[in-house]
Design a protein around this nucleic acid. Structure first.
Lengths: 196, 196
DNA sequence: TGTTAAACACTAACCGTTAGTGTTACGGTC
DNA sequence: GACCGTAACACTAACGGTTAGTGTTTAACA
């Protein structure tokens, strides 16, 4: 894991990165729908099958780093300071994520996403995956001891917050507004906990 | 609108219905992935292009009546008794929808959906559309006067409730549990309303 | 009755994706 | 240092959903 990876793995990672970079460049230049898989493969100088051995779908080329999202959310739960309440920790994380999407160098990519129905649909479905893994992280916390349904619900709400805030005119304010609502939902879930 | 439709429209509706029925029968018999569009078209005795002039995609064949969902949700808001609070009205509607999905003659169809990733993804994306139209209905109620963000948030939560409850072991109990949380979120949204 | 628009049909293709089949090239082992 | 197993990569050919292009029939309406 921590030892310097062999040439083979370096080459593999390089190929993957070259494909992803090429794809993103072409998508930004010409638009997502105007670029075919065969174009990307040719420009990256790999075979189509090679491309699909690195990425599960055309959409996955755009969401190359989506596992980071998933991990960051889970770690906001599992890695928070002892005794720190859950919702503020999540709120901080969502603030950071939304900022990352609406400003900074990732913004053009999100602009691309907003314009392609296929990408938006894929993003939603990613969101569900993230919500499920977040729910698992919440359910695993012994300090909380909530219903499965309550964990899943809160997780969904948090993902909704990210998605809704991105679309709002003032994203940061929207995060706060929605998290006010989530906080209240959270307290209901805690107070009707099965075993106190 | 209310006059008896002409022969042309009756024929069109009949063709559409025949396609939908044939598709659903084949899907239930052989499984969604094992049936191709060309199979459905041949069995319904229409051309493939005709099929696609009635349905936008293969998945849409399964969710033939999804506009009913959308309308029922909006009507639960706009058509509720004067003075009736919003959330209980929505809770009733979601209870009915969840019951319809988990029991009754629609249950086999939902079993089909649960087993196909393509159908699940399509359903989510339908859910977003439903949430957006529900949000519009909520925003249009002059008694409420909420932020756009608050309306969208509540609408999403309600759609989440439907989706989460369907997957729970006791769907009806899950609806109540989640709506307890939604009610709390709702009150926060109301109390921090822009103009009282 | 004739005009027009819409429903329908057919062919042929496009595009994402995958199966099948080899061909390298690297890493670990003797 | 030669050897073997394996994983990355390549190539062809196809499959399945979807659409463009081009007619042909049918029914509403003047």
């Amino acid at each position: 894991m921590t030892v310097p990876p062999g040439r083979r793995e370096r080459k593999k990672a390089a190929t993957r990165q070259k494909i992803a970079d090429t794809a993103l460049r072409l998508f930004l230049e010409r638009g997502y729908d105007a670029v075919g898989i065969r174009d990307v493969a040719a420009e990256a100088d790999v075979a189509v099958t090679t491309l699909f051995s690195h990425f599960a779908s055309k959409e996955a080329l755009v969401f190359e780093r989506d596992e980071d999202f998933e991990q960051r959310l889970s770690q906001a739960v599992t890695g928070r300071a002892p005794g720190e309440p859950l919702i503020p920790a999540l709120r901080r994380e969502i603030h950071a994520l939304v900022r990352h999407c609406t400003a900074g160098d990732a913004a053009p990519v999100w602009h691309l996403i907003d314009q392609s129905p296929a990408l938006r649909e894929y993003e939603e479905s990613m969101g569900l995956r993230h919500a499920e893994s977040l729910a698992t992280a919440i359910a695993a916390d012994p300090d909380l001891a909530l219903t499965t349904t309550a964990c899943r619900t809160i997780a969904r709400f948090v993902i909704d917050a990210q998605s809704l805030a991105r679309a709002a005119t003032d994203p940061a304010a929207a995060v706060d507004e929605i998290f006010g609502m989530i906080e209240a939902a959270w307290e209901v879930a805690c107070s009707s906990r099965p075993v106190l």
